[in-house]
């Protein structure tokens, strides 16, 4: 019977020691003449997960459409054409970026297979004709658009070397440098009209 009790106690002690979160103490003493001093340490650990949150345009899953409509009178005369649409209207979109996981690189790609925007009749307008600007180019630069995609931008971290927390806006303008055959070029995820921005940490 005594052995059974011993076994129970031993098992309980082992179980208690192995339990996650079991707290063990540091205890110290001092005695004798004053001054007296005893110290005990307490460890702390904080776990911060890595996160990357990126938004271009409307939130809640909406994909914005930016449109350009040059007039017949100024086709190809090099007069920049402002856009319409975007969550901020006027061809302007909100860009929100938050990450604590290192230097962020933003890369645009498109669904034109390197050909630019097309009108469905074999004619194309290069993405070079779409100009981009940022509300603060030093803080959150917008990458240049191209038919092949892949031109990157790197916003400097806003705190230390790994935290980026930015909200700016990007604006799109049609450069209007040439005359193209009539038609509607690009569109909602069609005719090479969709640009996808990808933000990535190391």
């Amino acid at each position: 019977m005594k052995n059974i009790y011993k076994q129970i106690v031993t098992t309980a002690l082992l179980a208690a020691t192995a339990m996650p979160g079991t707290l063990l103490a540091e205890a110290t003493s001092d005695d004798g003449a004053t001054p007296l001093s005893a110290a005990a340490r307490l460890d702390f650990q904080i776990n911060i997960p890595g996160i990357l949150r990126f938004r271009v345009g409307s939130d809640a899953g909406t994909i914005d459409l930016v449109q350009f409509t040059p007039t017949a009178a100024n086709l190809g005369d090099d007069t920049d054409i402002d856009g319409t649409g975007g969550d901020l209207t006027g061809g302007e979109v909100t860009v929100d970026l938050f990450s604590n996981a290192g230097q962020i690189t933003i890369t645009p790609t498109n669904n034109s297979s390197g050909a630019g925007l097309d009108n469905g009749l074999g004619d194309t307008i290069s993405y070079d004709e779409i100009l981009t600007s940022s509300s603060d180019a030093a803080v959150l630069p917008v990458p240049v658009l191209s038919d092949a995609g892949g031109t990157t931008s790197q916003p400097p971290p806003t705190s230390g070397s790994r935290v980026t927390n930015l909200t700016e806006s990007w604006t799109y303008t049609y450069d209007n440098t040439d005359v193209y055959p009539e038609g509607t070029y690009g569109g909602v995820n069609t005719q090479g009209g969709r640009v996808t921005y990808t933000a990535a940490s190391p």
Binding site: T22, L23, L24, A25, E26, A27, T28, S29, D30, D31, G32, A33, T34, L36, S37, A38, A39, A40, R41, L42
Partner: peptide, 10 residues
């Protein structure tokens, strides 16, 4: 005189 400090459970 004697002092003692303990931080934690056991």
């Amino acid at each position: 005189p004697r002092i003692n400090i303990r931080v934690g459970a056991a």
